[in-house]
Nucleic acid binder design. Sequence first.
DNA 1: GCAAAAGTGTTTCAGGTACACCCATGA
DNA 2: TCATGGGTGTACCTGAAACACTTTTGC
Lengths: 230, 230
Amino acid sequence: MSFAFYQNKDSFLVAVDCIIMGFRDNELNILIARRPFEPLKGGWSLMGGFVNSNESSDEAAARVLNEFTGIDNIFMEQVKAYGEINRDLGERVISIAYYALVNIELFDTTLAEKYDAKWVRLSLLPELIFDHNKMVKDTINILQRKAAIKPIGFNLLGEQFTLPTLQSLYESIYQESIDKRNFRKKLMTMDILEKLEEKDKGSSKKGAYYYKFNKEKYDQLIQQGLHFSL
Amino acid sequence: MSFAFYQNKDSFLVAVDCIIMGFRDNELNILIARRPFEPLKGGWSLMGGFVNSNESSDEAAARVLNEFTGIDNIFMEQVKAYGEINRDLGERVISIAYYALVNIELFDTTLAEKYDAKWVRLSLLPELIFDHNKMVKDTINILQRKAAIKPIGFNLLGEQFTLPTLQSLYESIYQESIDKRNFRKKLMTMDILEKLEEKDKGSSKKGAYYYKFNKEKYDQLIQQGLHFSL
DNA sequence: GCAAAAGTGTTTCAGGTACACCCATGA
DNA sequence: TCATGGGTGTACCTGAAACACTTTTGC
């Protein structure tokens, strides 16, 4: 079946670019790689790929994420589409950016070598090719707004984590320091964390208790119309 | 110049769909039109068009907006891209949605006939073709978040407006009623409106004073680090 | 004079912010 | 014993929400 309306319209390459974020060294990190082809071969780039006709753009993004990290089934959302004419120096390419929040522990490090990729701290992000820096900036904006109203931060951590870690995660997202007591007070009144027996002695002599995110509790509270705000 | 990397990649039709919003009868209205071609000829649709290779997607959206309303230079932002495989029943089309906030007074009504278009209240929005209802829903979400932190609502009104009108605009955006006194109190403490001499006697015997938005004042306050929140 | 919309203040409460000291432990 | 990071409570203040009556004027 073919309709006249669609004839003679311009068509475009459509890419997905993934802003893959992890949390390490008390800071947000982003996965970037050296671009292996011209133009701008060797430049720092986000993880990207072209959309194929047998997949949706969401699927393409998931595929790209898996390809470069080995990670699947992860929190991932669209940032927006970038449609400037000359944004890609090679050809006209419209790109749809997605950001993913991953637990950096799950990252398949063998893939880093294969793709000449590395995690860099957000604060040390180098200049990236094309409009990729803009994509990162837009992502951080979304993340700041979103993290305040949904508990997406937990996607960046493992099953269990300490409160100092959680706090520095949020400090990294908001790029400002947070008062320890106020942070903990808010968390406690939310009542969505479960305190564990174990302590993490990695970063202090005293050790910090591990907690885990109680998703059931959270869903239950939301159902009751309560609002999450961090 | 041509690079091997871009060879043999699938290419796609890329459309823009515009959620054009106006304010009328104390309610948000959306411009929709009967689709003039197959498939789904005669179905209700957003204003759309294809991106051409000589324009960015933003430019395409502005062109489409102008084409269907006669309006130019208007507040317009991207919603997101829609990339499901079968979202368009005719062919594979990736669509980038944009929303525009227009002063409905500026709408060129002759174009309504030409395109079989009409303004419908948000609350009476019929079923639209493809994923257009989803686009509208996503837009309302963005609008609610955005209107709370930026004074975008004024784009929907003329130069001058009454407080009852402004309030019903925000009530329409948030889809909930607002206390008159609290609303006015907040506006007054923000100090971004200028009270005029004139009254609008159109909707009451007593008449309501006209106000206008003081953009200079607003910019100045923002500069000082103050936050807008309505 | 009455219907209909415009306009106007006060009280209460919750949540946000500021702030400083003790605790546990390994070295 | 001391240096390091972990853990805890209170007072204040601001902003949100609830709430009811008076004013104007065309009919």
